[in-house]
Nucleic acid binder design. Structure first.
Lengths: 206, 206
DNA sequence: CGACGAAAACTAACTTTGTTAGTCGGGGAC
DNA sequence: GTCCCCGACTAACAAAGTTAGTTTTCGTCG
């Protein structure tokens, strides 16, 4: 075949196809051959644009991280800004749940990461925290946001809540009471944690 | 060779060797052949005890989760109990950081997981939360604990804090101020989040 | 304008890894 | 004492990541 008139691939095109593949078929579906197939190309061609699978995952991590909206961090109302940022972060991983296993613990494109933390710390400064407190608060927020993105608390409880009563009464009672508030325990738990954290920071800032 | 006088392997022996391998050499080092080598055995023999690699990861997840000390959750002082549990959980993953990528999003041995959540919810009930609030609080704690176990906030900042000043002034200021409090930003951030969460829950319980 | 080198696709094949099939020998059950 | 099952083995396959070497096109430099 030889070189085509116009390039069929690019780092970004490949990463987008990889994300689609993972969203549709889970993390195990992502193989170099399957990815090449989806792009109408042979696996070896991918290596003209990426050093290997590991760099593919880097590109994927970049792509997903770019979906996170940083603009809320610039808002004048620091509290609403931090909350909106945290919700947006969580939403991205709810949209791409299958990427989590692949991207957990992967260091993100440095530039964007630094930008994010700088904006986060600036917002915390605006909240009235001194810089050392702001550093700790940023770490705290980071933990909450990442944890809530990774974990689905309620997914582990597949049975009817009554079935837990014999051996796990506290669990059964909590699940039943939560059901009466409607679905969305995960989200309510996230919102609770977010509120308590921001309340605490506001109090500390005074 | 035929069958040996006494079995060389067992599900648990294999899982322990796998954990050692991962702790020493990272997640990529865990291959069926390398694992068998470490046990003085051939790879195929592992399949007499495990259905496959996936079940090996299940066994590994069990092993790591068993390291988490649940006894604090039974303490009369609910607050100290929850804090000690959370610290212990985090400590386990600090001890086995390389397992995180493998075990994130993996459902844990059902029995122990249910036991944990039941104890967690009982402690929250003792704190005075009504059951529906307790469910949300358990999710919130879960997020914090998992997030802080997975992420090392400060690991991304390898340069001297002054080097960030030109482009990321808020970040530079926060890192410098934090350094003056000594090392351990990650831990301080975790402790901050934990304190604020527990404070908030205590207030809500009243 | 023509030659040349780099880029980007290809084919073919190698290596590593997970896994399965089938073999062999020791120990407990009858 | 015989039987048979368990748990080790050897051999081999398939899938996946990767590399080598080929071909064709494009852009650039005389």
């Amino acid at each position: 075949m030889g070189r085509p008139s116009r390039a069929l691939l690019s780092r970004e095109i490949i990463a987008r196809a990889a994300l689609e593949l993972i969203d549709a078929g889970g993390a195990e579906g992502l193989t170099m051959r399957a990815l090449a197939d989806r792009l109408g190309v042979k696996a070896a061609s991918l290596y003209n644009h990426l050093a290997g699978r590991d760099e593919l995952l880097d590109a994927l991590a970049e792509l997903v991280n770019e979906e996170i909206d940083l603009t809320p961090l610039a808002r004048a109302d620091w509290r609403e800004g931090l909350a909106a940022y945290a919700r947006g972060y969580r939403a991205v991983f709810l949209r791409h749940p299958n990427t989590i296993a692949l991207l957990a613990r992967r260091r993100v494109e440095a530039g964007r990461q630094l930008l994010t933390y700088d904006a986060l710390l600036a917002a915390l400064g605006r909240a009235g925290l001194d810089p050392a407190d702001a550093a700790e608060a940023a770490a705290a927020l980071d933990y909450l946001v990442l944890g809530s993105a990774l974990e689905t608390f309620s997914a582990g409880f597949t049975r009817d809540s009554a079935a837990y009563r014999p051996h796990h009464p506290a669990l059964a009672g909590a699940l039943e009471a939560s059901d009466e508030r409607g679905p969305g325990l995960d989200e309510r738990g996230f919102e609770l944690a977010l509120r308590l954290l921001l309340d605490g920071l506001a109090a500390r800032a005074r």
